[in-house]
Nucleic acid binder design. Sequence first.
RNA 1: GGACCUGUGGUGCAGCCUGGAGUGCACGUCGGCCUGUCAAGCCGAAGGUCGCGGGUUCAAAUCCCGUCAGGUCCGCCA
Length: 589
Amino acid sequence: MNGSSGIEARGLRNRYIGGLSGGEVGERVTVCGWVARVREHGEHLVFVDVRDYSGIVQVVAHSTLDLRSEYVVQVDGLVSMRPPGTENPGLATGNIELTETVIEVLSSADPPPFSLLDRVDVDEATRLRFRYIDLRRDRMQHNLRARARINSAIRSSMERQGFTEIETPLLWTPTPEGAREFVVPSRLHQGSTYVLPQSPQIAKQLLMVAGFDRYYQIARCLRDEDLRADRQFEFTQLDLEASFVTQRDIMDFISDAVVSAAEAADIHVNSEIGEISWKDAMDRFGSDKPDMRFGNELIDVTSVFARTEVRALSSPCLKALVAPNPVSLSRSKLDDLVDRAKLLGAKGLLWLRVVASDNGLLLESPVSKFLTEQETSDLIAAAQVADGDIILIVGDIWEKACQVLGQVRLDLGKSQAHPDEYKFTWVVDFPLFEGIDQDGRLISAHHPFTMPNQEDFPRLESDPLSVRSQSYDLVLNGWELGSGSIRIHRGAIQSKIFSLLGISEEEAHNRFGFLLEAFKFGAPPHGGFAFGIDRLAALLVGEENIREVIAFPKTQSGSDLMTGAPKEIDRKVWDLLGLAVKDSKKDLS
RNA sequence: GGACCUGUGGUGCAGCCUGGAGUGCACGUCGGCCUGUCAAGCCGAAGGUCGCGGGUUCAAAUCCCGUCAGGUCCGCCA
């Protein structure tokens, strides 16, 4: 027990650097690590900072030994107090140093392509090309180790709550819908393919039919969709499913897991996680994944302008936002906001500046002269504004108006969210269907196995778009961490949903036949959830990009800059799979 | 599929708008000096396809077009 993490040093060393302390003065120790820095004062005095994962220690040498940055060394030396006045309070081992040292170079090293110091910004493409060097940096060491602790805490939480870890296949069967799947051609069945699972969704439902009661897995999921700051081709989810439970039970299981995960990252969360309905989230925050670390909620002002003469204000729905930081909004910034709103799909955005005058508060705006006195005073009252405030209004159908202004709210307000605050929120009562496609068929909001809300059953035929589902999302600081639902376990309901979705019996059989068949043999009521561990870990370590918590991520165009993947392969491999390449940038021969 | 930003010695940046010799800064690298530094210090040196291709011009890092790469976003992600 002599490392900073309490593990025993063995093999080529008998101490971890981070564990060295004044208590060992007078002992000879052997440590191993990388040369972090050399400070040479002539051949009689050389300071070498040696780094292992646990810390850095100053090694005093007297030789002319050729030591350069990132050389791998074994140092045998005497733990000594530093001479008075030369202690370094910035270093955990700053009151001691290793003297009378014997240094052996285990590996020499070329100068690294970039500085290993966190304070030096390096282009991400360069970091990814030499990822193994980038990973030596404190930031990545900290992030990946925090992620490991998060994983461990999640596993403990699951075990504590009686869940059984079960692995599911990576080579799965195509179920064409939802995310685009990665395809794996079969050699033994030419022309046929496996696909990599976008999630273990169906497999885990089968495990419920199989009677495992509570299943979980830290599962890799793969989706061939375009990448983003919070999306990689492959990502990791905590996936769970449980039988004979309610929505509330699943939410409790997950709450325990994420609160434990946060604690593992030294972040304390109020164990009471807030809850908001999808409708309220849209109405008040203009998002189904609201960032609730700051206020500035949207205000409905439709009724204020119910009889307006102004064309820009005659919309089915008008949402208003009081700008969180009005002083910074110059005329040109306001014009930018109008452009931004249009880019987001709004017809426009109206701004009104509140100014005090002898006659009370007035509104300055391109449309102010068209507003009646009643409208002006009603708007000022509804928005509860004061001198200097700026009111932003978007008019459209309800969902669009909310979404656009919700995005503007984030653009303007995010900077005032406290970076150390962690606001988990449950979003519940999602609609079962998110709309109607061109052919008049309903579109699933979650997936077609989601159980409708019991109270809304009678409206499935008459008013399907108003039907809520037993599904629930977990949101953290404006990021969707994951979602889950109670599943349909009875054939009659499933058939009804399939028919509403316009999925024929034959089509359902082709896609999910094995699942529907399984449900005939005694399916327990069940439900589950999955949340993204990459996203959770990124948020908990304060990163804005999940690549910072992934050891070897892909670029936005799906390349691995270190290995060069994806690469063209030999034609013989295609032949073996019974495939031919139609178009290729290079001749493959 | 689309919009926007970025690309200049090994690293980070300035130069670009308003064309005039690869001009500058910091770090690193290499060499020399240096016995208490810790982002050591001092002196010196090396290091460049200004992403790539084309165009405009007497002249292009700079202006224009195309293209590649990286990033952010829209679409997409049941």
